[in-house]
Amino acid sequence: MPRLTNLLIEHLARGQVMTITAIDRDGLDPKTAERLHELGFDEGVDIELLHRAPLGGDPLAVKVGNMTVALRKAMARLIEVAPLTTSIAAE
């Protein structure tokens, strides 16, 4: 998935809030894609990088909506984010 120009969660600084602009569902098995939604991930939702795991920086802990979710970088790379100002969603 060559989307090198786009911003990923792992590029964020801790505490930086952005908006999810795209989720590459084809890179996930359907069950996992569904679970991402069940945990609150969706286009147009705000996301904040809270923590990188000690000892290697993987997995990541992010805040999505009111939920804190831990996920590995490999999965986080399927989620594209953008600064709030260019947010597409007026929730």
Partner: peptide, 9 residues
């Protein structure tokens, strides 16, 4: 496997 887990308060 993947690792995807809610962190409760």
């Amino acid at each position: 496997p993947s690792f995807l887990m809610e962190m409760p308060k």
